[in-house]
Design a protein around this nucleic acid. Sequence first.
DNA 1: CGCAAGATTATT
DNA 2: ATAATCTTGCGA
Length: 172
Amino acid sequence: MAKLDYSFFVRHSVLVAQELIGKTLVFNDFEGIITETEAYRGLDDEASHAHKGASIRSKIMFGPPGVSYVYLIYGMYNCFNIVTEEDGMPSAVLIRGLKLANKHLDGPGKICKTLGINRGHNGISLIESNDFYVRDDNHQLAFETTKRIGISKAQDKLWRFVIKKGIFANLQ
DNA sequence: CGCAAGATTATT
DNA sequence: ATAATCTTGCGA
C-alpha cells in the first residue's frame, strides 16, 4: 500500500493530525493503526516545545516534515511525534494511540515503551526509512475532536483527535 | 548554579 | 490524588 510521503506531511499540522487517524504505523516488526493524535504548531502555540524558540530539544520541530521527534517526558517516558509543514515552520503531530493486532496502546508513553522507541530514534526520516514509516491502508475511521491532554496552556485549541468509542470495542 | 515544571503512567 | 524520575529552561 501507499507509504506516506513528503506531500502528506508538509501540509498544515492540524490537517495531518486528523488524517493520520486510521493510518498504519510501521516500526521494525511492529505494525498498528493510529487511533489518537495531537497537533502542535507554530511559535504562538503556547503548549508547544517550539513556543520559546528553537532549542537543543525542539530544533527538530523547525526542520523538514516527515521526520521523527522523540523526547523524554517526566524523566521516564518517551513521546513520539512526526514533524509537519515546511522546513522552518515549527510543528509536529504527537502519536498518542496505536491499535496493534493484539492490544490497544492508549498513551504516548505506552507506545514508545512497547515498540522500543527512544531518543535514539529522534531525527529519522519516515519518508526515507524502510522500517520506520506510515502507510495508508485506506481505513476510514470516524474521530472526535477535543482539547489536548496533559497541558495547562492553550486550552482553547481543539487539536486532539481520537477515534470514536466502539470502533475497537471488542478490545477496549 | 539551583530549582520548578513538564505533550505521562501505574498505583493508592 | 500522588509518586516516580530527569531534562529543560529560567532566574539569581
